[in-house]
């Protein structure tokens, strides 16, 4: 009896979700410390970290939405298209109409996200159509629609918008001195604040609300969730609404970061979002996942991109290969860990 406990001791106490989360955080920390030690200069400044956040705020938001759909056992590959559509629509509204208003543009972004969520949610949850196909069509539609709205990419000149875009929130005590000894305060953009708030809200929802627990239940085992009295269809529907809404918000944050509308925006973002979710410990089979893990997934992904860039391997193919190698590593580790755990539980 005691032997059994000892053998599976550590594994038994930790759930799948937390185990994968721990692996992610450890690997991210190792990577970042490694970057500081071996690459020095850039990574030693806190601003490097904040720059990673600034550039990836939109990805964090969309990846969080993606995690929720994945926890519920579905998938949504339309998010990249929605981000592009949102930024194009907002750009056109702010630049080509008379008397544009910032708040209306935010409403447009939310509206597009919500509309996407409702349509895809209904098709997936109430008509039992495979989420992959539905969101594939959603992606096609969003990409095509973006070019129909406006073909040529352009920068937004609207004054209110540029003011909002250039708003910097300084982080106290994190600044650094440049070569001349001048103090440069560290800053983050508004998008980062939005992203962090969303991470906290979604984390709380997943952990402490009935809806959040329902997401896990439906993803883990649909049949037993149904028997426990969970409204499976409504839960699936809501997961898609959350995801698309996050894509809408992410789209606006992305738009705020780049300040332009283009059909080629956010190409491949859906794959980055899925990859970050997986690196963060979410499993595509559903039922396992964590929003904090997703946050670290995005951070790991972009840290490795930065390492590759600053190591002087600027030839474009290295980025793709290293990200893929890292993804491969994470997946294999996850697979081995889960298998070990199963074995430990059996004996």
């Amino acid at each position: 009896m005691d032997k059994k406990k000892l053998k599976g001791g550590i594994f038994n106490k930790v759930s799948d979700t937390n185990l994968l989360l721990a692996i992610t955080i450890v690997i991210f920390l190792l990577m970042y410390i490694g970057a500081i030690v071996f690459q020095g200069s850039g990574f030693r400044k806190p601003q490097m970290f904040f720059n990673i956040l600034n550039a990836n705020a939109a990805l964090i938001i969309t990846a969080c939405g993606m995690s929720i759909v994945m926890i519920t056992g579905g998938i949504d590959i339309s998010v990249g298209g929605v981000v592009a559509l949102v930024s194009m629509c907002c750009a056109v509204y702010l630049d080509k109409t008379s008397n544009p208003n910032i708040f209306v543009s935010i409403l447009i972004a939310l509206g597009i996200g919500l509309a996407y969520g409702i349509i895809q949610g209904i098709l997936v949850a109430y008509f039992d159509i495979q989420p992959f196909i539905v969101s594939l069509a959603g992606m096609f539609f969003a990409r095509g629609m973006t070019t129909i709205v406006n073909t040529a990419p352009f920068n937004v000149q609207n004054k209110d918008f540029t003011k909002l875009k250039n708003t910097r929130i300084t982080v106290p005590k994190m600044g650094s001195y440049n070569k001349k000894g001048m103090y440069i305060p560290a800053y983050v953009e508004i998008g980062v604040v939005v992203a962090l708030i969303i991470v906290v809200i979604l984390f709380l929802v997943l952990r402490y609300t009935k809806l959040g627990r329902n997401f896990y239940a439906v993803g883990g085992n649909q049949q037993s969730a149904l028997m426990l009295g969970v409204n499976v269809k409504r839960t699936k529907f809501l997961s898609h609404i959350v995801c698309s809404l996050m894509a809408g918000i992410g789209g606006y944050v992305y738009f705020l970061h780049v300040g332009s509308g283009a059909a080629s925006h956010a190409t491949g973002m859906e794959m980055n979002a899925i990859a970050s979710s997986i690196i963060g410990g979410t499993m595509l089979t559903g039922g396992v996942g964590n929003i904090i893990g997703t946050l670290f997934g995005v951070l790991s992904l972009s840290t490795i991109q930065n390492i590759v860039a600053s190591a002087g391997l600027d030839q474009a193919w290295w980025t793709g290969i290293t990200i893929a190698a890292m993804l491969c590593l994470f997946l294999v580790i996850q697979s081995i860990v889960i298998r070990q755990k199963k074995r430990a539980l059996k004996t």
Binding site: A137, M139, F140, F141, G144
Partner: peptide, 8 residues
């Protein structure tokens, strides 16, 4: 470029 929307 717009082909995708109709396809969808």
């Amino acid at each position: 470029d717009a082909l995708a929307a109709y396809k969808a």
